[in-house]
Amino acid sequence: MSQQKVIISVRNLTVEFRVPRGILRAVDGLDLDVYEGEVLGLVGESGCGKSVFAHALLKLVDINGYIKSGKVIFDGTKDVYSLGKKELREYRWKDVALIFQGAFNSLNPVMKVFDHMVDTVLAHEKNVSSEEIKKRSIELLKMVRLDPETVLGRYPHELSGGMKQRTVSAMALLLRPKVLILDEPTSALDVLTQKFFIRILKDLRKEFGLTMIFITHDLATVAEIADRVAIMYGGTIVEIGNVEDIFYRSRHPYTRALLNAIPSIVGDISKLKPLPGPLPDPVNPPPGCGFHPRCPYAIQICREVRPELERIDAVSFVACHRWRELKFD
């Protein structure tokens, strides 16, 4: 895993929203490098800013939101936030594609699936014939194990949730993007469909050599597919590492707490240690380390100074004042 090329580099990204109560900071000074060809799992509780971050990678923000500061560099040279309108359009989907959390709702209800495919291709490539688009779509739909002939002629509401999910995945690959972001792709699926979908993703990765950013709150799914895991809390990354390191040698108290909150299918449910307290209020975030109000190890410095994301080894980082001294278990 060492000496890999960075495909997406995020520096000091801050995304804010205007809400009635004031300014809501959903992503707060986030730094992250994604390496070419890896599957990066991005894990965090609901409301920690995962989706907002995913959208911001494509410079998509809700109407009352805005990107306050930061940079997203694609492939070493492309500064996403200073692209012109046309270049931004080309960057979207062709370089980086995104499967939305609401994959179920990400199809236009009055358009057939095939028309979505046509729209997507024609937005990026001129002079592609309808037959060519059809050929490509059929190939991809087969890859996600859908029956292309029936799916292409259908309206979104005529497909089941899992079928829509896979349709959207096929659409994401139409332009052979380098990076695929999946925002909670499995959370709305039942467990069997989840497994099935993960298997498809693994195949796709092998087939295309895709870089994937897999966003979820489900650590078990991450363990199954990711090479590296980034843990997000309060709008920023608190720990990154190889998947084994995160699961067996995690250094951040929050990561520990997350792992302790996973129920085991054979274990005793009373041994679970749910994390006390709510997420920090993103309108009035606590000073210092965002996790300190819930952290059992918090000391004075945690309440005053925000910890930097420190490098531990080639691929591991942690943002905690006390990571050197803390010993868990």
Binding site: L58, A97, N108
Partner: peptide, 17 residues
């Protein structure tokens, strides 16, 4: 506010479309 609008933007469709 629907997802399919943001999804269409994410696919890089022309604004007019």
């Amino acid at each position: 506010g629907e997802y399919y609008i943001m999804a269409a933007e994410a696919r890089g469709l022309p604004e007019r479309r």
